[in-house]
Design a protein around this nucleic acid. Structure first.
Length: 811
RNA sequence: GCUCGAGUGGUGGAAUGGUAUACACGGAGGAUUCAAAAUCCUCUGUCGCAAGACAUGUGGGUUCGAAUCCCACCUCGAGUACCA
């Protein structure tokens, strides 16, 4: 064994050792104690970034630790290979998306191998591989048959110069990122999945996801946004038309001072012809990016449409305004505005001098101050026959009366919208349908799947290359032989990532999505990934799992039993990104310190859910710790045996070892608190270094201690630990070793230190025999002169004693 | 804007209603060395000679006792449906 720690040689050799031993192959012959551990697969953007390293290190630590608990662990890795950046690279660097992606995958795979992750590489998948996407095309056709897919017109961001559809990300300050042209909204027909048919189930099943963080469940719940309210019909004055509004506060209907409609609302089509101000306003709104963030963050603006509506209950005539903050996709695209009791409506009314009527009184404070509007429920005022009712009863009565005059109905509403899956892009999975000249849609026959992407494409023309590819686009209908045109849209890439966890189990299976003999490996036991996926990806995957269940592919209802949402990696407080030029290349750090140091630093520097601040000096510190571990191991391995060790010191050392096992094990397995687990192993190492300096220390205890540290740290820093393990002549893969066991007899302590407080303030400490009762402790305290000095002049009103921990005097 | 998080020494963080600042980084001093690197040892929240007082974003509250629970606010981060 070398005196100095040399990670470069060690890591290469240990990786060979694992390969030789087939250390990370999963035994699929049995599902007993199965543990499917999955990290979110990466988009192959070029190089791994530190966020990936964090994600995959967490997953690897959990996988290796579970192996040592005796679990049969499956930990695969693959590539989310379709996506926009490949097309951008194709246009910018004249490289084919396919080539670009392949090159990146090869590079990133090597990087993952250098980091020593325990993946079963036999089950690698790439979503751009036809043998992968064939099955999502098949699945789409099943959904089509089950009437869970439909086509409708929907808006996109349109770049009029580049003649292409832009992602929200590609719209900067309302302009196309490449052309700089002002973006327009354009309506085009697109495919949708009926996720809203699963709204209630997606909502209800959240309750059973005990292994998920509450925050993620709350975000999904609010995203689905179930609410119970009323659909109210307002007649448009001097017309037969009706405007429907959805409200959860029908008790405020007497406070409606105006209606506000989305600038995209259909009734404005005719209205804008004779109203140039309105037409101009609608045009202006069209140049807004299609994101909710943009729409609701802008300054509220509106224009009087000239139309008026009749309140169905009291006949009041109110104006109808077009307003830029009304979302066309939520509810009916039209809202009844109650500026007296809604913050946004109030802001709008004040700005445009619209009247404001108060109709609700707060029960608590009686009268409201003039500044704050009251948005809660209370007692009705100024509301005709409903005056003096409370909000709840008023809602009921008003609804009943509205129903009588056919002007209202109860309605459960969801914020969740159906999932638009069409993308006007090349680098994605082709949607497997085609059209006859008359527009009828036909699914591609199952035998003709997969519909593969053509390789010979031209990015020099505007728009989607599939659109401009005549030999691919124009086909003969396989059913009739008539002329037909392929769908040139491809799937949203969330489509691929919604079911990949299942394909890992049988990546080459030729007769379906999943080899049914692997069904019992689902669901995933532990899923690890960035918090940025809390809503979209995780909701779509949950939705897909339920769809697959209903088609008979899986038995369970949820894909991921436990979820660990890891935080971002920041540099100087901001997210690392290429555009900010503050990225760290993991290769550089591995070259300098080795993979174990990178892994240790990442796990030690912050709890996994929190954001992690990158620090060069922090990584230095982690490296130093590994050097100290190496150096102590070297000393212990080459130490002469002591004939008569000091028994008390041995006992204390063993207490520390087993206390550390207890804390480390609890932190690692029960709390995912890797940083504090590592801290406890650092404390143990420090104490062992001191103990080792004694001439009368016990070799047996030192070996017990160092073996314990090596085992416990092996999931985190596997190379150095395996190397030290081999130097103990063990030569077995550590992942197959059992986790250290606690010797309870070593944990017993005869004395405890008790905190003494007066009125909750620390005033001293006393040492007692373990398990002494309140009177005995009280007597001990009174022997302490300093504390007695505090107590003697005061009346003791109460004593609070917590066994073996604390005594508090209330005076 | 809305939803969900986070805020503790010079820095990353620890403390799951009971000793605030474990562990580490940085800093200061020392040992070793011809010298340096590496390594090791000691000190290190603020004020104060000390006793002690004050400190967990701000302001209130609950409690014998609050970083932790509740209310209001401020700042930062994530998501916001076509980035992944």
């Amino acid at each position: 064994m070398n005196k100095d720690y040399n990670p470069k040689d060690i890591e290469i050799n240990i990786q060979k050792f694992w390969e030789k031993n087939n250390s990370f192959k999963t035994d699929f012959s049995s599902t007993d104690h199965k543990f499917y551990c999955l990290s979110m697969f990466p988009y192959p953007s070029g190089k791994l970034h530190i966020g990936h390293v964090r994600n995959y290190t967490i997953g690897d630590v959990i996988s290796r630790a579970q192996r040592m608990l005796g679990k049969n662990v499956f930990q695969p890795m693959g590539w989310d290979a379709f996506g926009l950046p490949a097309e951008n690279a194709a246009i910018a660097n004249k490289i084919h998306p396919h080539e670009w992606t392949k090159k990146n995958i090869n590079h990133m795979r090597e990087q993952l191998k250098r980091l020593g992750y325990a993946y079963d590489w036999d089950n690698e998948i790439s979503t751009a591989d036809p043998k992968y996407y064939e099955w999502e095309q098949w699945f789409f056709i099943k959904l089509l048959e089950k009437n869970l897919v439909y086509k409708k017109k929907s808006k996109v961001n349109w770049d009029p110069v580049d003649k292409t559809v832009l992602a929200n990300e590609q719209v900067v300050d309302g302009k196309g990122w490449r052309s700089g042209a002002i973006v327009e909204r354009k309506e085009i027909p697109q495919w949708f999945l009926k996720i809203t048919e699963y709204s209630d189930e997606l909502l209800e099943d959240l309750e059973d996801l005990n292994g998920w963080p509450t925050s993620v469940k709350m975000m999904q719940k609010n995203w689905i946004g179930r609410s119970e309210g009323t659909l109210v019909k307002f007649k448009i004055a001097n017309s037969d038309s009706i405007l429907e509004v959805y409200t959860t506060r029908v008790d405020t209907i007497f406070g409606v001072n105006f209606l506000a409609i989305s600038p995209d609302h259909i009734i404005l089509k005719n209205q804008k012809k004779d109203n140039p101000v309105l037409a101009k306003f609608i045009d202006k709104c069209k140049s807004l990016k299609l994101s909710e963030e943009t729409i609701s963050a802008i300054e509220k603006e509106g224009v009087d449409t000239g139309l008026t509506a009749i309140n169905p209950l009291d006949g009041t005539i109110v104006p109808i305004w077009a307003a830029n903050y009304i979302l066309s996709d939520y509810g009916t695209g039209c809202v009844m505005c109650v500026p007296g009791h809604d913050v946004r409506d109030n802001e709008f009314a004040v700005k445009y001098n619209l009247p404001i009527t108060q109709v609700i009184l707060s029960k608590e404070s009686g009268m409201d101050s003039d500044d704050d509007i009251f948005v809660g429920e209370g007692t009705l005022i100024n509301s005709g026959k409903y005056t003096d009712l409370d909000s709840k009863l008023a809602k009921k009565n008003i609804l009943k009366d509205l129903e009588k005059i056919d002007s209202g109905a109860p309605k459960v509403n969801y914020r969740l919208r159906d999932w638009g899956i069409s993308r006007q892009r090349y680098w994605g999975c082709p949607i497997p349908v085609f059209y006859h000249k008359d527009g009828t849609v036909y699914p591609v026959p199952e035998d003709d799947l997969p519909v593969t992407l053509p390789d010979d494409i031209d990015f020099s023309q505007d728009g989607n290359p599939l659109e401009n590819h005549p030999t691919w686009k124009y086909i003969k209908c396989p059913y009739t032989g008539k002329d037909a045109v392929r769908e040139t849209d491809t799937f949203d890439t969330f489509f691929e990532s919604s079911w990949y966890y299942l394909r890992f189990l049988s990546p080459d299976y030729k007769d379906g999505l999943l080899d049914q003999s692997k069904n019992q490996w689902l669901p995933v036991d532990q899923y690890i990934g960035g918090i940025e996926h809390a809503i979209l990806h995780l909701l779509y995957a949950r939705f897909f799992h339920k769809l697959m269940r209903d088609i008979g592919i899986v038995d369970s209802s949820e894909p991921f039993l436990s979820l660990l949402s890891q935080g971002m990696v920041l540099q100087d407080g901001v997210k690392m990104s290429k555009s900010k030029g503050n990225t760290i290349d993991p290769d550089d750090i591995i070259d300098k310190y080795g993979a174990d140091t990178v892994r240790l630093f990442i796990m030690f520097s912050a709890p996994p859910e929190q954001s992690l601040e990158w620090s060069d000096s922090g990584i230095e510190g982690s490296h130093k710790f590994l050097k100290r571990l190496w150096s102590l191991s070297f000393k212990i391995f080459n130490r002469e045996n002591i004939k008569s060790p000091d028994l008390q010191k041995s006992k204390d050392m063993r207490t520390k070892i087993h206390k550390t096992i207890k804390k480390f094990t609890y932190d690692l397995f029960e709390r995912n608190s890797f940083n504090t687990a590592i801290a406890s192993s650092m404390e143990l190492l420090n104490e062992m270094i001191r103990y080792n300096q004694n001439k009368d220390s016990d070799n047996e205890v030192l070996l017990e201690g160092i073996e314990t540290i090596i085992k416990m740290l092996s999931p985190i820093t596997p190379h150095i630990c395996q190397e030290l393990w081999n130097n103990l002549d063990k030569n077995s893969p550590l992942v197959n070793e059992t986790w250290p066991k606690i010797d309870n007899s070593a944990l017993l302590e005869s004395k405890k230190e008790i905190i003494v407080q007066i009125n909750g303030k620390l005033r001293g400490k006393v040492t007692i025999e373990t398990d002494q009762n309140e009177d005995e402790v009280n007597a001990m305290v009174n022997l302490d002169e300093k504390i007695h000095g505090y107590l003697k002049d005061n009346d003791i009103k109460k004593i609070i004693y917590i066994k073996n921990k604390l005594i508090n005097y209330v005076v």
